[in-house]
Design a protein around this nucleic acid. Structure first.
Lengths: 254, 254
DNA sequence: TAGAATACCTACTCATGAGTATGATTGAGA
DNA sequence: TCTCAATCATACTCATGAGTAGGTATTCTA
């Protein structure tokens, strides 16, 4: 039932589609909105997988825009210009829908880990590459489903499943950090806390990206990586860090 | 039908608020009072403000535990061992309830800004102090309401209100970063992106803190500040980052 | 001690939305 | 062309939960 989700179908999901009618959410930089495979012509076409993906993508957009609980399956159906039973024809229930969105968003991150696995680079560089993909994924239309979906909304079984997948990513990041500390490319640190900090900063993109799309997800990730790498404390040889000029004790007018 | 909650189950998270006056409740770290003001004795006491705060605290715990949409006002009432109309006697509606939780969580952060305002310290030190309070607030029982509450769940007016309050915090962080860059205590950087990264990492605590309470919120914030300050790239002169040992080279990409 | 104000409860209304039973229609293969 | 499976719609069921109407009990006050 959920067999073919990750095989090769979703790598195109996050990026390009075309449309004629502007949908509620303006999907960012790339001038894109989807049109449903239904609207195309009067005929009833048989493209099960294509339509199924369209349903998932429409759901992702709706969740991203209104949240999971404020999105009804009637809404999603209306977006696609079909009716609710049609949606249920392609997906078993709302929870599955959210889960599929989650998987679609997660896949590029897992791909990034695989891609980086055998690269002849210090671990910090490999970590950075993963983080860039991570940021792009979180800023994608599936970002909400990956990041903001609450495990309380899911059945226990599915909650466990999602937690396992998230944990896999988390462990991957920690592992890269550990390797970096070992090969000297990363300053010694607590891998667990560092992973939390990095992933948190990136995950949070899903909370504000809709408001401010002046940068792409990858660009944001790039900026974050720069910040994390350098650190806030000045690196200049002057060592002004510990002896920065003190302020005068005055109130500064706002 | 949702099962009833155990009566004394939430003690470990409990926090006491300064039961003073109509002042908003704060997410301090003082020890516990879990009992609802109702079940104390058979008599019907008249402590409107105290009871109101108990309602808000119970709501915060429930939201934190099950999410906003999965928490009914009947649930909250059951926790307090009263009925739903009693809850409505103290708060006008569910949205207000969430808003009050939000305010309760936010207050300590605003207080931290005020507290730090006139300190004779470099801006980086003042920023760190704020971030520590920030982390503690996010890990408090009001953390969920501050961080994970979706603006889609709120009326437009209230959404604007909350956004304004959040923006105030954001601007405060950016300001401290700018000051730090000017007084030389912070490495030159983009204040906006840096603020996003810092706040994001800290906000994310609200997503995982329930699962892992091995550290207090302040301790987590402390660890994060250390990471942020130092940066990932090694500072020791001996270990040049760009010259870290390469792994076996299998493939070169990107 | 008799109102009056406060505090609380029982028992509703009503809207929403997930999910389905059932039947109609269409496309593809024979 | 004829059939059957795939596709899709109409029109429901049913559970949940926000919010309320109206009454009861308790405490305060004059």
């Amino acid at each position: 039932m959920r067999g073919r989700h990750a095989r090769g179908g979703y790598n195109t999901l996050g990026q390009r589609m075309s449309s004629r009618r502007p949908l509620p959410l303006a999907a960012g930089k790339s001038p894109v909105v989807t049109d449903s495979p239904w609207r195309a012509s009067g005929e009833r076409r048989r493209d099960r997988e294509l339509k199924r993906e369209a349903v998932i993508r429409a759901a992702a957009r709706a969740f991203n825009h209104k949240g999971y609980h404020n999105t009804s399956l009637d809404d999603i159906a209306a977006t696609l210009e079909v009716t609710k039973p049609t949606v249920y024809y392609y997906v078993s229930n709302k929870e599955q829908l959210l889960f599929q969105c989650f998987l679609a968003g997660l896949e590029p991150i897992r791909a990034a880990f695989r891609e980086v696995k055998d690269l002849a680079l210090p671990a910090r560089a490999r970590l950075n590459a993963v983080l860039r993909h991570y940021g792009a994924a979180v800023a994608s239309e599936f970002g909400w489903s990956m990041v903001r979906a609450e495990d309380q909304d899911l059945s226990p079984a599915m909650s466990r499943h999602i937690k396992a997948l998230k944990s896999e990513i988390d462990q991957g990041i920690r592992r890269l950090i550990r390797e970096g500390v070992q090969d000297g490319s990363i300053e010694p640190c607590d891998p667990k806390m560092t992973a939390f900090a990095l992933a948190g900063a990136l995950n949070w993109i899903a909370h504000w990206y809709r408001e401010d799309q002046s940068l792409t997800g990858a660009e944001i990730a790039e900026a974050f990586v720069t910040i994390f790498e350098g650190g806030l404390r000045p690196r200049s040889a002057s060592q002004s860090a510990t002896r920065a000029p003190l302020r005068r004790r005055v109130r500064i007018a706002r």
